[in-house]
Simulated scan of single mutants.
Amino acid sequence: MPQTPTAELIDEAREKHTAVAAFNVITLEHAEAVAAGAEQAGAPAILQISENAVKFHGGSLAAVTAATAAVARTSSARLALHLDHVVSADLLTAALEAGYGSVMVDASKLGYADNVRATADAVRRGHERGVWIEAELGRVGGKEGEPALDAHTPGVRTDPAEAAAYVAATGVDALAVAVGSSHAMTERTAALDHELIAALRDAVPVPLVLHGSSGVPDAEIRRAVAAGMVKINVGTALNTAFTGAVREYLAAHPTTVDPRKYLVPAREAMAGTVAHFLGLLGG
Rank of each mutant, 00 (worst) to 15 (best):
A190K: 00
A227S: 12
V246T: 13
A227C: 14
T243E: 14
V177T: 10
G180M: 10
H183F: 02
A227V: 04
N239R: 15
T189H: 12
I232N: 01
D173V: 12
R188Y: 00
R222P: 00
T236D: 09
V230L: 06
R247A: 14
A219E: 15
A219W: 08
T236R: 04
D193G: 01
A161C: 03
H194P: 09
A168C: 08
S182W: 01
E220S: 07
F242C: 15
E248K: 15
R222K: 13
A198I: 02
H211A: 10
D159N: 14
T240P: 03
L238T: 09
G171H: 05
E195T: 01
I221G: 03
V246D: 06
T240Y: 00
R222C: 11
N233L: 12
R188V: 07
T186H: 09
T240S: 14
A198M: 09
A164W: 05
A237M: 09
V167D: 03
T189S: 10
T186W: 03
S182D: 09
V230T: 15
E248S: 15
V204D: 04
A163M: 09
A176V: 14
L196S: 01
D218M: 11
V179R: 04
A168H: 05
H211M: 13
V225D: 10
A163E: 06
E187I: 08
T243W: 06
R247P: 04
A241G: 02
L238W: 07
A226Q: 10
A226P: 03
G244W: 08
T158D: 08
E162I: 10
Y249L: 15
P205I: 14
M185G: 05
A184W: 00
P217G: 11
L200S: 06
V234G: 03
H194I: 10
A164K: 10
M229W: 02
G235Q: 00
R247C: 06
A219Q: 14
T236L: 04
A161N: 12
A219Y: 01
A224Q: 04
I221H: 00
A203C: 06
A174Y: 02
R188M: 10
L250N: 08
S213N: 10
R247H: 11
V230H: 02
T186I: 10
A176H: 11
A251D: 14
L208I: 10
Y166W: 06
G171K: 03
P217V: 14
V177W: 02
G235E: 07
A178N: 02
I221M: 08
A203L: 12
A226D: 15
L192S: 11
G215R: 09
V230N: 02
S182F: 01
A191R: 14
V225H: 06
R201F: 04
V206H: 05
H211F: 12
A176G: 09
L210K: 09
A165T: 12
F242T: 02
A226N: 09
S181C: 14
A226F: 12
